[in-house]
Write a protein that binds this DNA or RNA. Structure first.
Lengths: 115, 115
DNA sequence: CTAACGTACAACCATATGGTTGTAGATACG
DNA sequence: CGTATCTACAACCATATGGTTGTACGTTAG
């Protein structure tokens, strides 16, 4: 289930979007599926416009999508993008293991290289 | 293997540190274990001081640690912190699944609620 | 139709960020 | 010893970020 279609810039946007507690909270709330922007905004000690900006950051990162319902815009989390971020980090760990294994093999292969 | 000792601010630092391609590359390189700051800096089209700042950001986020070897400072990645970030995202997905299940149960429990 | 609501967006401001250059302190080398 | 190297850090600059307020527009409710 490897996706791998993220450019460096998209990864930048993704992690940047996650690097703010308010935005992470919005992502959590929007997992339930139905939240208008003003509905979300009422939950935070900041202006509607500020929350709107946070939602825009999340949208650019692909973490949420917006759909229209009458005059409202409904925000919901795209869990797939969270998945992609998680896979990215898992690939880091994978790489780490690979390199550690390579070093171990080198050591085993030539045990007296550094007397 | 749940760690959970990260404050919101630490999570901010963590994801912010990961939201830059140069820093992600440094993390990858530093997984091999032995890289001086100047050694790292030679690999990028920017000044030594700029790379030094990136390393400082990674250090504050707990993604790398520095140790001394003579006049050099050796940078190496702390894989545990990558793990913590990964677990954070996994917890998001877990939460998503939980909520979806709750909604499904509600629907199953009261199938004729919205005729 | 009019008023209220939800949204979008521009303008503005303070601070943070990512880069630069320059200076200074430790440490190793000859 | 003196010098070169590695690091640390300050000062500075341009731009980005996160917040504000105000205005405009589409949609719904009465």
């Amino acid at each position: 289930m490897v996706v791998d279609t993220l450019t460096d810039e998209q990864v930048d946007l993704l992690f940047h979007a996650l690097a703010d507690a308010t935005r992470r909270d919005i992502v959590k709330r929007a997992m339930t599926g139905e939240h208008s922007v003003s509905g979300l905004a009422s939950g935070y000690a900041m202006s509607f416009a500020a929350v709107q900006k946070h939602v825009a950051v999340l949208e650019r990162a692909g973490l949420v999508t917006k759909s229209r319902r009458g005059r409202e815009r409904l925000v919901r989390t795209d869990i797939k993008t969270i998945n992609q971020a998680s896979e990215l980090l898992d690939r880091f760990e994978e790489l780490w293991r690979t390199r550690v294994n390579m070093m171990s093999e080198l050591l085993a292969q030539d045990p007296g290289a550094t007397p």
